[in-house]
């Protein structure tokens, strides 16, 4: 493939890195978002509702472009001279925002699926709300949320390919550049597909193992 193997390898690294960081931060955003949606404070609920409605309602590609160009414009205005946002961090930020919005809904649903009596039993022995979350709600929520989270993670892995549009050298970018310069699009796109498929298959397998482990004691 004319020396593109090494570039593909580095692209793979970038893809995994972006997905892993956005996924980790997105989980935190999702937990905070779900907590906000279920909060007794109206303002928090409204902010969280606006967040998930807007982000889920706009194509991911647009979110990336808005963050990239918006971020550049904002930083430029702030600093006073032209500053360009790095493609990597614009990508991580956008995907975190997107992942967080969907994760918010997944976690909210999972928390609401836990019977109220579970929390009441925890409160009735005098556990504090944070202990109730940690000991009773989170472990049960994780089990319920896992299948949906797996789906979301797979989408995230594939959505990283969108960041190539702002110049991130991920798998997709390498494939596009290679396809153009070697005049052999099919080979390069097939190679990229194989890499994504490898990542997603590995993820599915991991999730299946985790799920089996987590569900084992309850059933």
């Amino acid at each position: 493939m004319g020396g593109f193997e090494e570039q593909f390898l580095r692209g793979l690294e970038t893809t995994v890195l972006v997905a892993a960081i956005s996924g980790a931060f997105g989980m935190l955003v999702g937990l905070a978002g779900a907590a906000a949606k279920l909060s007794r404070f109206r303002a928090l609920r409204m902010v969280a509702d606006a967040y998930t409605t807007i982000v889920r309602g706009v194509p991911e590609l647009l979110v990336i472009l808005l963050v990239y160009f918006g971020g550049t414009a904002a930083l430029t205005a702030l600093v006073g001279s032209y500053v360009e946002v790095s493609a990597l961090w614009a990508g991580v930020f956008s995907l975190t925002v997107v992942f967080g919005a969907y994760a918010t809904e997944i976690f909210r649903g999972a928390i609401q699926a836990i019977p109220r009596g579970q929390t009441e039993a925890a409160l009735s022995i005098g556990l504090a709300p944070w202990q109730t979350w940690l000991l009773v709600i989170l472990p049960q929520m994780a089990r319920i949320a896992l299948p949906a989270l797996c789906n979301l993670w797979i989408s995230l892995l594939k959505d990283t390919s969108l960041i190539s549009i702002v110049g991130l050298s991920d798998i997709m970018r390498v494939a596009v550049v290679g396809a153009g310069s070697m005049r052999d699009p099919l080979t390069f796109y097939l190679a990229a597909s194989a890499l994504y498929l490898m990542l997603t298959s590995f993820s599915l397998l991991t999730f299946r193992l985790v799920e089996r482990r987590m569900l084992a004691p309850v059933h």
């Binding site: 019977p115 009596g117 039993a121 409160l123 556990l127 504090a128 049960q140 004691p217 309850v218």
Partner: peptide, 22 residues
């Protein structure tokens, strides 16, 4: 409230045991 609840044992109609714990 926590301190007092800790001194009042409650048994529920639907048991409300935590399913992920023995």
């Amino acid at each position: 409230a926590r301190r007092v609840r800790a001194s009042l044992g409650m048994v529920f109609q639907s048991f409300n045991l935590w399913p992920h714990k023995t």
